[in-house]
């Protein structure tokens, strides 16, 4: 095992604490602390303009934080060694590929700049993703450019892969192919992936951790399992007085009909069942929510 591999097996891939970022007098990011470990696939969710791109760029050291710090494999992001940078793959939201070049020319160039290069994978992906090696990049569609940028980011087998809205211009089939490739890539040890998207249903299969950015703050940093287990729908028969409802901890939403109703609860645990039974409720059933529903309720967007 090389020293590099050993280094990345221990400890964290990426870490940030109390990160703050100001841009022209405006606070874009505020008090962000987070950790990424090898094996993590993190989904970064947030509305347009919530600061997703700024967060990814700051984590990778493309800009200076106004306060706090962030590091990748223990090296401060803005002062990363070239060795460290070689282990990172980044796909920006808008492609920054040279329009006059062809993919073939670009591969030739990259191969010289990158100590590691998985030529087999490139040869396999180009036809599979229906990309031309000889077409000038400026003649490619947005989706094709995005796919090419992803191939380039994967080709040097980075241990940290950061993708900013990677599927925005991909059609459903290309999206599926991309995620299949991404999950195959995630199977190797030591690799970590962070990607931003506003398509929640994509995240459900792919990620093990969700970050949610709201107004520049991390409003959610939880594992997917934790979200599924702690945000639930409770259906019941019976009636709940307003005072009883108010007393229910973590009540996100409630609805009633003639015989009973349903509650959406945060911080659920099996032990809370008794408290509900003590309220005089019957036929209590607890069921899970889709990730999309969980987010709508957590962010209060599903109130009538």
């Amino acid at each position: 095992m090389s020293a590099d591999q050993e280094k990345s097996m221990t400890g964290t891939t990426l870490q940030a604490s109390q990160l703050q970022r100001m841009l022209s007098g405006q606070t874009i990011l505020q008090d962000i602390s987070l950790t990424v470990a090898p094996g993590d696939v993190v989904g970064l969710l947030g509305k347009n303009g919530s600061g997703k791109t700024t967060l990814l760029e700051t984590l990778l050291g493309f800009g200076f934080a106004s306060f706090g710090n962030c590091s990748v494999w223990g090296e401060e992001s803005t002062k990363m060694s070239s060795d460290c940078k070689q282990r990172i793959g980044y796909v920006p939201q808008r492609d920054e590929l040279p329009g006059e070049m062809t993919a073939k020319q670009l591969f030739h160039l990259y191969r010289q700049l990158r100590p590691r290069w998985d030529g087999d994978m490139v040869e396999r992906l180009m036809p599979a993703w229906e990309l031309s090696e000889t077409k000038r990049i400026r003649r490619m569609s947005e989706g094709q450019k995005q796919k090419l940028a992803i191939v380039l980011a994967l080709a040097h087998q980075p241990e940290l892969l950061v993708l900013d809205e990677p599927v925005a211009s991909l059609d459903p089939i290309a999206r599926r192919q991309f995620f299949q490739q991404l999950m195959d890539y995630a199977c190797s040890d030591n690799r970590a992936i962070i990607f931003s998207s506003h398509i929640v249903s994509d995240m459900e299969r792919i990620v093990n951790r969700i970050w949610c950015l709201q107004g520049g703050q991390l409003s959610c940093d939880r594992t997917l399992d934790d979200l599924y287990e702690s945000v639930v729908r409770v259906s019941y028969k019976g009636e709940l007085a307003q005072a009883q409802k108010v007393a229910i901890e973590g009540l996100l939403h409630s609805e009633e009909d003639r015989v009973g109703g349903q509650l959406i609860l945060n911080n659920w645990s099996q032990g809370r069942l008794i408290a509900l039974q003590n309220c005089g409720l019957e036929n209590i059933t607890v069921s899970g929510l889709s990730l999309e529903e969980i987010f709508l309720y957590l962010h209060g967007a599903k109130h009538e």
Binding site: M183, R205, N208
Partner: peptide, 15 residues
């Protein structure tokens, strides 16, 4: 294998 299943169904290998 975990890899096969994760790759073909596009799901997280940890899952």
């Amino acid at each position: 294998s975990v890899r096969e299943l994760a790759g073909t169904h596009a799901v997280n290998p940890m899952t």
